[in-house]
Design a protein around this nucleic acid. Sequence first.
RNA 1: UGGGGCAUGGUGCAAUGGCAGCACACCAGCCUUUGGAGCUGUGGAUCUUGGUUCGAAUCCAGGUGCCCCAGCCA
Length: 557
Amino acid sequence: MDPEESKPTDFIREAVAEDLKNGRFKSVRTRLPPEPNGYLHIGHVKAFMIDYLIAKENGGELILRFDDTNPAKEETEFVEAIEEDARWLGIEWVKVTYASDYFDELYEWAKKLVLMGKAYVDDQTLEEVRANRGTLTEPGKNSPFRDRDVEENMDLLERMKNGEFPDGSRILRAKIDMAHPNINMRDPAMYRIIHNPPHHRTGSKWNIYPMYDWAHGQNDSMEGITHSLCSLEYEDHRPLYEWFPEQLGVFKPRQIEFARLNLTYTVMSKRKLRKLVEENHVNGWDDPRMPTLRAMRRRGYTAEAVLEFIRKVGVAKNYSISEMALLEACVREDLNKKSLRRMAVLRPIKVVIDNYPDDLVEEMDAVNNPEDANAGTRKVPFSKVIYIEQDDFRETPPPKYYRLFPGNEVRLRYAYFIKCTHVVKDDKGEVIEVHATYDPTTRGGDSADGRKVKSTIHWVSAQHAKEVEVRMYDRLFTKEDPEEGDDGFLMCLNPHSLEILKGFVEPSLAAVNTGERFQFERLGYFCVDSDSTPEKPVFNLTVNLKDAWAKVEKKGK
RNA sequence: UGGGGCAUGGUGCAAUGGCAGCACACCAGCCUUUGGAGCUGUGGAUCUUGGUUCGAAUCCAGGUGCCCCAGCCA
């Protein structure tokens, strides 16, 4: 492999390389601009990795800057959560800053604009401002306060800052062009008056707070950010992004926009995620069904898998919805290499091996990970009464069913061949016990006479099994794109996205720690949940194993 | 009917005037003490109409479709 060729390339990396080559910038500095008003989700990872990797690949640096320009929405709690999640991904930054660190300097820059006659205080009501903005097809009208003289503007702005006016009574606006075809250029607001609540960092020092367009770009300039990489919806803001530093005569960063990540069968908007939590459709922000990083971590996804997914999804300007199946494939690929194999029966049915000695217990040798010879082996106890998966037995087998049914012989993994002889039913005709005989010459799972079986099934010894809770997760929504409509997404919630099972696991799993991951053979990858206790371990389904039989069965229907 | 963007297999991303390729998904087979993993193979795409060119996914012109913008949110 030529490392030069395997380097990922995309239109942003090309643009950055070009900027370096032609001298527009001498080095690269990017910024991570989360607003501390929610938890990070998989969509953020794409943006974060673009910023992080592009800086890193070019020997540049990344600044983590919290965009805290709206005290009504932001909280310190989220600052810590975001840093924690970003660190989990392995992202490194040279320093943490806040938009609020620059409030003083930004205010000075605003006064400069006022002095230049490029900004003014507008006394119009919110409704008037809206009415005079015009529409998508009609130009706006100038505010009656647009031509105030500089002294009055300076005085009013100072008094806004000092808290002399009530919320919403005035704003500072850039004086650009009310007839501009781009609505963002129709005298955009720079400062609004907000007295309460106090800001999470500056407290009650400020009575005015900068808008995104004013703060973000100027902060980029102040920090010497060369490339301000953001999502597509900011394309319309780029002319404004460039207008401010041009007027001010300060350093001009370059903004480049890319398509954000969307995923099938989930939602990504903060508003919708919050609604899921607040209305208890899920059990909190870290509910393993959520697309948040804390949820994915709790569910057992590895950072490596998440990162690989992001790498495979690529970077472009196409609006796109990536498939959850790709994310899951990345998780399986990573976990297949790392996970210790264990046996667990999630929907048990009892099997009695009639010709096996009543009190005998044998220790069977089992391989911990066939993908990793260094993982070693373990002993698994075997005895007369075992549990197998209900799915692994059929009284009347459908076509191509190779598992246990009356008269059929299968292999119990790492143990013996058994052949089903008969079943015992309850009053209602339900099979409650499967009876079988074993072949003592097949110990370990190999037949002495070269006889083959079509199927190997897993099991646990009934008397040695540990009962555990297993939380089985399925997609949160039944539709690939539940985003359509306002609250339409709630209408397609999957009622079966969580199923709680009581299962049995082999005794080696009796003592486990939160976060430990295993593959339950033939079922999937599982992770010990934080709700786990020594008495009652709790496992989360991380992702199921691919199931060829399920496919065959489905096709038959 | 303003402005800004985007159109390549089912999905996502490549191909930067020279044989349309990769991954996931799908399908078939091989192998298998996980119907897992692995291996092999098949099918399937350049929005449309014209133009330029020896040659167009790529350049030009027109059309069509989809996304974003009218917060004192970010």
